[in-house]
């Protein structure tokens, strides 16, 4: 594991360079009926609006935003590379050090997610800060998800905590 001084330098680099920067690329996701319904059933949801037949116009429950957000970030995050002191580095040096610290979902002005939808996610870095008491680095990922008609389906801010040794 790096020394505290090295970790502080790495944190300072990320705090200075990440905010506002886009994650390269886009993540594409297809919404499948079975997956959407099985997801809702995890929470004992029985309303046909969320677990009914495709012909009846089933839509995704709100929690399904977890699924497309996580899949998007798994796709986008590995593409985030930086040059620090002349050497290329990834955002996260050790994926086992990541903790999911929080999420903010906003559906204002968004449309429902339906089976057959093709979602596209883009993301950029938001605030980045270090809690020196435990050397945990927090990184916000501002993610916008739209459907095939370019309509927003959800705007999400994911806060990841990276434990010492992970950045």
């Amino acid at each position: 594991m790096s020394s505290i001084e090295d970790m502080k330098k790495n944190a300072e680099f990320l705090i200075e360079n990440l905010p506002g920067k886009d994650l390269p690329g886009t993540a594409k996701l297809s919404v499948r009926y079975r997956n959407l319904v099985n997801f809702a059933k995890c929470f004992d949801i029985t309303d046909p609006k969320y677990v009914g037949s495709e012909e009846e116009g089933v839509i995704a429950c709100h929690a399904y935003a977890n699924a497309y957000t996580i899949k998007s970030l798994y796709t986008l995050a590995p593409g985030a590379k930086f040059v620090q002191n002349g050497e290329e580095r990834m955002l996260i040096k050790n994926p086992r050090m990541i903790l999911h610290a929080g999420n903010k979902y906003n559906w204002d002005g968004c449309v429902d997610v339906k089976p057959g939808d093709k979602l596209t996610a883009t993301a950029k870095f938001g605030k980045v800060w270090l809690v020196e008491a435990n050397m945990m680095l927090f990184v916000e990922l501002i993610t916008k998800i739209k459907n095939q008609n370019n309509e927003p389906v959800c705007n999400v801010v994911v806060t990841a905590g990276i434990r010492k040794g992970g950045y």
Partner: peptide, 12 residues
């Protein structure tokens, strides 16, 4: 985020 699903369900 598993437990989050029960929060959204409460409001749904």
């Amino acid at each position: 985020l598993f437990s989050f699903g029960f929060i959204t369900k409460l409001f749904e």
